[in-house]
Amino acid sequence: MSTEGRITLQQAYVLHRKPYRDTSLLVEALTPDFGRIGLVARGARSRRSVLQALLQPFQPLLLSWSGRGELHTLNSAEAAQRALGLGGDTLISGFYLNELVMRLVPRDDPHPGLFASYCRTLEQLGSTEQSAWPLRLFERDLLQELGYGLQLTHDSGSSQPLLPDERYCYHPEYGPLPAVSNTADCLAVHGETLLALATGEQPDAQYCREAKRLMRVILQVYLGPRPLASRELFKARNTYTKRKKPTVDDEE
């Protein structure tokens, strides 16, 4: 889709922003029709600007911009609704979503489905304390949108429907195979875990943990060796916090 000309009131979320020149901001935003885009918000850091308060992650926005090329010029921004009530650990989960999108989604590549899934995930993070499962579904949708969709309903070898109690060996590229072919480069998972990811119904904690391990291995293939900083942040928390016992199931 061409991004030339003037775009008005496009739904968007800020993924990341950094200072640019003296008073401006460079903003990376996720939109439904234009995918991830780069914007320059001129004067956003000046003393009188309200833009800096508005252009924050997890704030539903309506953005208008113009210009061609890699970086567009932000013309106006307004709040689409109240900021999502992300606080505490769910903020770090939110950073995790943003980091995944920044790392895996190229600029100017429209993904309406991804935007819908991003909105849904943020809303769920804002309304619950349990943030692990919505993150799994977002990871599933992200892979799907990028063209790396997962086989979650049928055995890749025999094309038979997966059985919940059966154990499978999941290969990042080929999908689930019967667990007999247990080689080093695939991961053992229950059919229940894969079927839950397919339907979106949250399974028991044991299968949630399995889904987390599975997604981590698959995402690793596309993320490469550089670790995710938001995941490191979750991990480091236990070293600074004096807990009686380490939590087994941190969100990320």
Binding site: H16, E99, M102, A229, L233, A236
Partner: peptide, 11 residues
């Protein structure tokens, strides 16, 4: 401040 996307962590 902590900012995972800029690579700024607790240390």
């Amino acid at each position: 401040h902590l900012s995972p996307l800029d690579g700024i962590g607790p240390e």
